[in-house]
Design a protein around this nucleic acid. Sequence first.
DNA 1: GCCCTCTTGTTCGAT
DNA 2: ACAAGAGGGC
Length: 740
Amino acid sequence: MDYLKGLNDRQREAVLYGEGPLLVLAGAGSGKTKVLTHRIAYLIEQKGIFPGNMLAITFTNKAANEMKERTSDLLGGNIDGIWMGTFHSVCVRILRRYIDRIGFERGFSIYDRDDQIALMRECIGELDLREDDYKERHILNIISRIKDSMMSPNEYIDEKYMDPFKGNVKKLYVLYEEKLKDNNALDFDDLISKTVELFRTNPDVLEYYQQKFKYIFIDEFQDTNRAQYQLVKLLALGCKNLCVVGDDDQSIYGWRGADITNILSFEEDFPKAKIVKLEQNYRSTQNILDVANNIIKNNSGRMEKRLWTDNARGRRVVVENVLDSYEEAQFVIRKIEEHMREGYEPSDFAILYRTNAQSRIFEEAFMRNNIPYKLVGGLKFYDRKEIKDIVAYLRMIQNPVDDISLKRIINIPRRGIGKVTMEKLEEYANKIGTSIYDVLLDVENVPGLSTRAKNSLKAFVDMINRFIAMDEVMEIQEFIEEVVYGVGYIKELEDDGSIESQARLDNIKEFISVAIDFQVNNPEGTLEDFLANVSLLSDVDKTADVDNSVTLLTVHSAKGLEFPIVFMVGMEEGLFPIIRESEDKSEMEEERRLCYVAITRAEELLYISHARIRTIYGRTNYSRPSRFIDELPKELIDIGGQPNGGSYGRIGGNEAINPKEHLIKVKDLSERSVTPTRRSLIDQDQIREGVKVKHAKWGIGIVAQLRDRDDDKEATIIFDKVGMKRLLLSIAPIEIVKGG
DNA sequence: GCCCTCTTGTTCGAT
DNA sequence: ACAAGAGGGC
């Protein structure tokens, strides 16, 4: 196998570099994944390094899997021993083994945002801080930054000891940490910081992993935070065979603690580090690259880098001025249809936006036009109530002291354990300083409970104990089924019989099939592993590989991906760059890097659109084009739409629109959007349960229920793409699909 | 204990 | 615009 075939000089240098620290500054589209996979393959085959001695940290699990596949393709062999994953998944793997060394139990729970909020709400309540300044999310964000930067509560307050707000944040932080420990739970930030703590306090454990990981690779290094870098430095201390790959121009996670100085100070931390710059771009046309370079050059404090390409100049970048988001979606659809006639496939396109809220109107447009699409980050499968409930049961079984999970499910399905009973339980648990579960084990001691409440509680805790025993001997999928039937969840939904309950049952089935998949892929996997896996998937990981469809995603999610044709939408001041209270220079530079990331996703064609009016939070405002549009070189772009169609020139700012004026415009639009032929209504008698219909907006669906409603008939229809909807037959724009 | 209505915040990005 | 939480009535 020739690992050097098709590599340029710089790439080859990085692949063949021997021992010691290596920093690869890889510009967008410069083939960094190729370098990583070839280097790993080279080390395994030529240098005889055992895959089990390698650790590769990537940004998503999906990227890790791809890297694994590509590497094993190169070697024509199995490299399963290699540790590849995200920072979080790698840390969980280490903590599952050794966390008892720092006072937690191995079955610890991983708390997501909602769990954190529930816990913080308790903290705020206990400290009597229910004021506007102490919102759960806000405090959690501050604490998250403190943890990212590896500060203890004392270090945080020492700097700012005069500030009463910060004093209270410190108190909340301390209490929050205490409660996490009481619940035997870790939040996302803890997964990193507790691993660092484990290594610092247990030299033997650190030494074990230092010995194990003789070669370490970190992808997207510019997006690591301080805690992550500490972790990497500790691990690499032994061998110093640390290879980091990154691009300071693509640092877009400053808001969650990513520290761009990590990449800038790598040379200081590792004085003998070799630095290789990859500057040849293989992805984009000359035009796209020139546009990207013109944007990013407006930032200061960058590392010297000059991206170039041998690719053709290509078509010009199109900047389109549209009236509003509705027209913007129409524009995108029209262009996609045009290009598909040229031979492009749906999977060749991506729509990139700044905020997830922008996705909806595009989804509707794609459905209406029957173009297949997939939404990254919008699929809230794991956020559904029924899934969270089941996960809470599983967590509680695995980690009975997890009060947050217990409180979530103790009365689901209803068992007559109400608010008053819970208050008594919690009060008693607080008094004797144990978990609610421990109190339940000896429920007779709790003062003030009725016999009925005690009986319900006993039945509950007996059931949980049965599950704890079963978990020891059962396969995951079998066990989950045992739980969902055993707790009466399925029965309650079945008895209810509504369409909503049916949808929930389907979701539970889907969850069970996720468990089956997991079991197939991880024959040795335990319930803990499964739960960690469920918690740590990124949105990109969760998005199913729908065949040949347009991708809709945020710019952040698009990092690391590429598409032949890219639409950047909503390029307006206040939206991209997004408006902030404090307009800080470094924040504006991060917005610009984000813009650079978006542009460099495009291989062949790039469309940039901005609307003259935009509705955000239900408010409609005039908007100006993004300043980034002004930064585009005029000679490389084509301007489309109606350059002077809006009045933003006169108003000059994003000002609120006279509501009446806007109503008129909306009315005009809606009239335009109705297809006159749809007015001929269907023969209502033909609509029966089980009939297949097609809706103008939501596509294909099956009639599930039909009932009289006033003088009309209301049909409940399950659509393939949007799920259940209730429609009045007299006005619904549906038609019967023949042969269905 | 449950259901309904009203209020509130939310969406900037995500493990 | 919309969802989730709070609060009041039953």
